[in-house]
C-alpha cells in the first residue's frame, strides 16, 4: 500500500509544471524514504532528477517499493482539477496498475477522486557522480528566469562566465548581442535576493537557451536557484522545494569545434 498526502495540492502542481515541458512520461519511484524521479528529456540532452522526502509529506506510507510510470499530460489533466488549497492524497495498492489522486476541499465538503492508468516504462537508473564544481552560483530564481527569457531573444545559446567578482550571461545573434553581469551581493540581510558565488576556478560555458528556459518553469517552487558548473561536465540547476526536497536539472554544455 502506498499513500502520500500533502495539505495543499499547489506544491505538486508546481512540481508537475516544472517537469512536463521536458518529459512526456516518467516513473515515480516510491520507497520508505520518499519519491524519486530521474529521467532524460525527450531529446536526451538534459536530465531531470526530482526528490521528495517522505518526512516532507503530511502523511506518508509505502509498504513496498513501487515504480509508477505516469503519462505527465494525463497527470496534468487531473492536477488541473484540484484547487491550490485542496488536500491531495495519492494512493496505490501494491502491484497496482492504477494510481488514485484524491482532492479534498478545505471545509471537507467536496471530495473528488481521479484514477489514472499507470504505464510500464523502460527506465535506466543512472548514477549521478559526486562532483566538486569549479563554480557554484546562488541567485534569485526570478532573476535567473528573467535573464534566460531576455537573452533567448538574441540567440539560441547563452554563455555563462563565472569569476570571483560576478557572473556574466551573454548571447549574440543576427539582432545583436546582449550581456548581463551580476555582481556578488555585499550584504547578507536579504538572503532571498542575494547573489553568492563560490569559486575554485573561473569557468566559461555555453548552454542551449531552450533548455534553460524549460528549467525555469521550476521558479515558483523556490526563491533561490543554484547553478553548479565545471568545464566539460553538465551544468546543474537546482531548485530546493522548501521542507520537501529538490529538483535538479543537468544540462550538457555546448562545446566549440
Amino acid at each position: 500500500m502506498f499513500e502520500a498526502r500533502l495539505n495543499t495540492s499547489q506544491v505538486l502542481k508546481k512540481v508537475l509544471d516544472a517537469i512536463k515541458d521536458l518529459l512526456n512520461e516518467a516513473t515515480f519511484d516510491c520507497s520508505d524514504s520518499g519519491i524519486q524521479l530521474q529521467a532524460m528529456d525527450n531529446s536526451h540532452v538534459s536530465l531531470v532528477s526530482l526528490s521528495l522526502r517522505s518526512d516532507g509529506f503530511d502523511k506518508y506510507r509505502c509498504d513496498r517499493n513501487l515504480s509508477m510510470g505516469m503519462n505527465l499530460a494525463n497527470m496534468a489533466k487531473i492536477m488541473k482539477c484540484a484547487n491550490n488549497d485542496d488536500t491531495l492524497t495519492m494512493k496505490a495498492q501494491d502491484n497496482a496498475d492504477t494510481v488514485t489522486f484524491m482532492f479534498e476541499s478545505q471545509n471537507q465538503e467536496k471530495v473528488s477522486d481521479y484514477e489514472m492508468k499507470l504505464m510500464n516504462l523502460d527506465q535506466e537508473h543512472l548514477g549521478i557522480p559526486e562532483t566538486d564544481y569549479a563554480c557554484v552560483v546562488r541567485m534569485p530564481a526570478m532573476e535567473f528566469a528573467r535573464i534566460c527569457r531576455d537573452l533567448s531573444q538574441f540567440g539560441e545559446s547563452v554563455v555563462i562566465s563565472c569569476t570571483k567578482e560576478g557572473v556574466k550571461f551573454s548571447a549574440s545573434g543576427d539582432a545583436g548581442s546582449a550581456n548581463i553581469k551580476l555582481a556578488q551581493t555585499s550584504t547578507v540581510d536579504k538572503e532571498d535576493e542575494s547573489v553568492v558565488i563560490e569559486m575554485q576556478e573561473p569557468v566559461t560555458l555555453t548552454f542551449a537557451c531552450r533548455y534553460l528556459n524549460s528549467f525555469t518553469k521550476a521558479t515558483p517552487l523556490c526563491n533561490q536557484v543554484q547553478l553548479s558548473m565545471s568545464a566539460d561536465v553538465p551544468l546543474v540547476v537546482e531548485y530546493r522545494i522548501p521542507d520537501l526536497g529538490h529538483i535538479r536539472y543537468y544540462l550538457a554544455p555546448k562545446i566549440e569545434d
Binding site: 536526451h44 543512472l126 548514477g127 549521478i128 557522480p129 553538465p234 543537468y250 550538457a252 554544455p253
Partner: peptide
C-alpha cells in the same frame, strides 16, 4: 545535440 548527448552519457556513465 550529438556532442551534448555524449557529454551526458560520459558523465552519468550509462
Amino acid at each position: 545535440n550529438g556532442q551534448q548527448q555524449a557529454i551526458l552519457v560520459y558523465f552519468f556513465g550509462y
